[in-house]
Design a protein around this nucleic acid. Sequence first.
DNA 1: TTGTAAGCGTTATCAA
DNA 2: TTGATAACGCTTACAA
Lengths: 343, 343
Amino acid sequence: MPRRLPTVSDVAHAAGVSRQTVSNVLNSPGIVREATRARVAEAIAELGYRPHASARRLRTRRASTIAVRLDPFAGGISGAVLDRFLHALTERAEARGLTVMLYTATDADDEIRQFQRLVDGAVVDAFVLASTYYGDPRTEWLIERGQPFVTFGRPWGIADLADPLHFWVDVDGRAGVAEAVRRLEADGCRRVGFLGWPAGSGSGDERRAGWAEAVTAAGVDAASRAALTVESEESVGAARAATRRLLEQASDLDAVIAASDTLALGALIETRGSLRVVGFDNTPIAAAIGFSSIDQRVDEVASAALELLDLVGRSEADDPRSHRLIVPDVIMREPGLALGLVG
Amino acid sequence: MPRRLPTVSDVAHAAGVSRQTVSNVLNSPGIVREATRARVAEAIAELGYRPHASARRLRTRRASTIAVRLDPFAGGISGAVLDRFLHALTERAEARGLTVMLYTATDADDEIRQFQRLVDGAVVDAFVLASTYYGDPRTEWLIERGQPFVTFGRPWGIADLADPLHFWVDVDGRAGVAEAVRRLEADGCRRVGFLGWPAGSGSGDERRAGWAEAVTAAGVDAASRAALTVESEESVGAARAATRRLLEQASDLDAVIAASDTLALGALIETRGSLRVVGFDNTPIAAAIGFSSIDQRVDEVASAALELLDLVGRSEADDPRSHRLIVPDVIMREPGLALGLVG
DNA sequence: TTGTAAGCGTTATCAA
DNA sequence: TTGATAACGCTTACAA
C-alpha cells in the first residue's frame, strides 16, 4: 500500500525550520540563507519529498497542464506525424515542468465541449491544437474566452496571419518543396511533377506553390506547369490513378514531389520505382521503403509551441514573436533503391 | 481574461442550500431529497459549475489520472499500434472520468525515475505500461511499492502468469496466427510459411507457435516446418533478405504469415505481390496497400485495461479476473491486389 | 531572513 | 435529510 507521502511540514520538522522556509527554498531559493537552504535541501532529499501537485495547483491556480487532442485514428500513413509531434511535445513539456494530457473529440463542436469541460474544471491552462483549417471555429472560441492556446498550423483563411491573439507555429511547406525541387534538379532531373491534394487545404496549397515557384524559376512555363501537376485524395489508390494521369500528361517526367508520403507511395508503386519520388512528412514508411521525403522537424515545432505559450497574454499587438515559421528538412534517399524494383 | 470560476459556495448560495448539500448532489445523489437535488442541479446548470479538479484531488487523495509512456520508438511501421491503443485508452478513460497523461523515458531506469516523480507528486494513481518483456524491472518496482498498474502484454518470463499482483491484458497472437493459417488453407493454400522475429521475444514466439500449431494440425511434419520458417529483424530490408532465404528453402511456398506488418511489407515487395501475405497489427500501411493482417483490437485491450485497474488491490489471490487475453481479428484482404503488381 | 496566519475549493465527519 | 466544521498540502501576504 502506498505509504503516506511526506509533506512540507515533515520536511520543515526534519530540517528544524518552518513550513514557509521549505516552500521558499523550493520556489524562491534566492531569499533564503545558504546554510538554511542546504539543510532544507538535505531534508528534502532524505525524505524523498516532492510537492503535492494538486495542492500546489489549487493554491497557485495554475494547472501546469496542457491539453492535446489525440486524433481519432486519421487513417492514412501520415498520422505518424502527430504521433512524433506529441512525443516531442511531451518531452519538452516535461523539461518545463508541464504535464501533457490527452482528450479526444469527434468533431469541432465536440472539441469545443471538451474545451469547456477542461477549462471549467481548471484541469488545464492551455491548449495545443495540432491542425487548423479554414474557418476553424475552435480558435475563435478560445480567443473569445481568453484561453491560452497555440496551434500547429497557421490560421488559414480569414484570420490575419499576424493576429497577435492567435499564437501559431507552422512548417514552411512552400520552402521545403521548393528546396526539394532544386535538389532534384541538381541531381539532373529536368521535369519535376507535383502530385498534390485538391485545392483548398491550406498546407496543400502552400506545398504546390513551393513547387510552382521553383520550377518557374527553372524556366518552366505556365502551360508546362499545368501538365506537370495533378490532384489526388489522400489514399494510395487515388494516388496511383493520379500518377497514371500525370504520366499521360507528361510522358517525359523525371521525378515527382508529393504532398504526403501516402501519395508518394502511390506514385512509387504505380511507377514501380522507375521515378524519383519525394514525399512529405518523412514517415516511418518512407524510411522503411527508402524514398526521399520532407521532414517537418516536429521537435522544433514542439519547442516553439511551448515558447509561444509562455508569451500568451504577454505579447504586444503585432508582436512578431507570436508566431513562428519553421523550415523543414529535405531528406534525400538514394534513388533507385526505393521498393527495390529498379536496377 | 478567464473569469473567476463558480465554486460550490456560489452554487450553494444560488440554490439556497449549504455547500455540503451541493457536494452531496454531485457525489451521493441518493441521500438528498429529490426537490433539493433538482434545485441544486438547476443552479449548477445555470452557473455552468464544474468541480475544481485539483481541489477535489487534494481532498479525495485520488488523482483520477493514469500515466502512459509515449514511446520514442515511434519508428518502424508498427508504432501505429500504440498510437491506436492510446487513442482508445483516452476515449475510454474520459468516459470513466479519468485523465490520461503522458510521460517519456529513454530506458527502463529512466522510466522508473519517472514513476518516482509521478508517484511522489501524487500526479497519478495508476500506470499503464504498453509493452513488457522478459525480466522487466518496471513491474517489479511497481509491485514492490504497491503502485497500481496494468500492462498491455503478459509478464513474460519468470513471473507467474497468474500472479494476482500483476494485472495484464494481452492479445492472443498464437490464436490469431493459427486462425490466419486456417483461413489461408480454406482459400486453397497448401504451403504456408512463417516470417518471424528471432526467438526470445515473448509475443514473437507466441505468434510462431500459433503458426506451428496450425500447420502441424494440417499435417506438416517437423522437417517441413523447419523449411517453412525463417527469422528477421524488424525492418523491411531484413525481411526482404529473409524472404529470399525462405523461397530457397521452400520453393513451393503458397503464402507467408509475418510477425508484423513491417515484415509483411518486406515479403510483399520481395515477391512483388506473387505470394499471399498476412501481416500483424493491421496498420494503416496494410490497409493502404491492401494486404491481409491480424488486428490486435486495441479498443478491447483499452477497455479491459481500465476494468482491470478498477480491480487492483481488490482482487483475491489467483483471481482469474486479474488478467485478460483477447482474441485478435484476422482481416483478410483480396489477394493479388496487394501492391497491384499481380494480374 | 524567518515565522504566523489565512485561504485556494473540495469532501469527510458528525451533530442537528 | 441537511448544515457546520475541519482538514487535504500548498503558497502568498504580512509580521516578527
